[in-house]
Amino acid sequence: MPVSRRDLLAGLAGTLAGTLPGLNRAYAAALAGAPVPAAAAPVRLWLRREGTGEEVSAIVRTPGGYNARDLLLLSWLLRDVRDGSSAVWIDPRLFDLLAAVQGAMSAVHGSAVPLIVTSGYRTPRHNAGIEGAARGSLHLAGLAADVKAAGYAPDAVAVAGALCGRGGIGIYPTFCHLDLGQARSWAGGRKRPPAGQPVPGTPITQPKEPT
Results as ranks from 00 to 15, higher is better:
residue 8 L to C: 03
residue 11 G to N: 05
residue 11 G to Q: 07
residue 13 A to N: 04
residue 15 T to N: 03
residue 24 N to K: 11
residue 24 N to T: 06
residue 29 A to C: 05
residue 31 L to C: 13
residue 31 L to A: 12
residue 36 V to Y: 01
residue 36 V to M: 12
residue 42 P to A: 11
residue 42 P to H: 06
residue 47 L to G: 09
residue 49 R to T: 03
residue 50 E to K: 05
residue 51 G to K: 05
residue 52 T to V: 11
residue 53 G to H: 06
residue 55 E to P: 00
residue 55 E to S: 15
residue 58 A to Y: 08
residue 58 A to E: 04
residue 59 I to C: 15
residue 59 I to D: 07
residue 61 R to S: 13
residue 62 T to Q: 12
residue 64 G to V: 03
residue 64 G to H: 12
residue 64 G to K: 13
residue 67 N to I: 01
residue 69 R to D: 14
residue 69 R to Q: 13
residue 72 L to A: 14
residue 81 V to G: 02
residue 87 A to W: 11
residue 90 I to W: 02
residue 91 D to L: 10
residue 97 L to I: 06
residue 98 L to W: 05
residue 101 V to W: 01
residue 103 G to D: 06
residue 103 G to S: 14
residue 108 V to R: 07
residue 111 S to Y: 11
residue 114 P to T: 09
residue 115 L to I: 14
residue 117 V to P: 03
residue 118 T to H: 14
residue 120 G to V: 10
residue 122 R to S: 02
residue 127 N to D: 12
residue 131 E to V: 15
residue 138 L to I: 08
residue 138 L to M: 12
residue 138 L to P: 00
residue 141 A to P: 00
residue 143 L to H: 07
residue 144 A to T: 10
residue 150 A to P: 00
residue 152 Y to T: 00
residue 155 D to G: 00
residue 155 D to A: 01
residue 157 V to P: 01
residue 158 A to P: 00
residue 159 V to S: 11
residue 165 G to K: 02
residue 169 I to A: 01
residue 169 I to Q: 01
residue 172 Y to E: 15
residue 172 Y to W: 12
residue 176 C to W: 04
residue 179 D to H: 08
residue 183 A to T: 04
residue 183 A to Y: 05
residue 184 R to L: 06
residue 186 W to S: 13
residue 190 R to M: 08
residue 190 R to Q: 13
residue 192 R to L: 13
residue 194 P to I: 04
residue 195 A to T: 04
residue 195 A to C: 00
residue 197 Q to N: 01
residue 200 P to Y: 08
residue 203 P to V: 13
residue 205 T to M: 08
residue 209 E to R: 15
